[in-house]
Amino acid sequence: MSKEITQQTTGQARPIEYTTPAVDIHQDGDGYVVEVELPGVSKSGVDLTFEDGKLIIIGHREQKEKGGRVLLQEIRPADYRRVFDLDPTIDPSSIQATIEQGLLRIRLQKAEAHKPRKISIN
């Protein structure tokens, strides 16, 4: 999935406007948890790509036809995009993600070789 989507999103001729989502990153055990706020994005609207050491997060908003007169508009209708450089100690195959009520939670694990190890003395 990743390759197709990457080409599709990077090969665009005209620039697309994106909103930068708010992100929290914290250490969790041996790995990291990245929390990305993507309100308006369902599970199928998330494109998560790992390429060249970069984690690319794209969230496509569900486009719904909304009728009527607009009295107040504060919600930006643009899609979301955010890119992070991942530490080389992170194992790309360990990346797992879930989305619940517009909150994308990405779990990153350090590669086995980089995990802290306790050495016992004989």
């Binding site: 308006g40 009295l71 504060e74 009520q101």
Partner: peptide, 22 residues
């Protein structure tokens, strides 16, 4: 949180953007 308000002939619709709530 960001809010949208719309009005049509039948109803007023209010949307509030807050991710990750219960």
């Amino acid at each position: 949180p960001a809010m949208d308000v719309r009005e049509d002939d039948h109803a007023v619709t209010v949307e509030l953007e807050v991710a990750g709530m219960k």
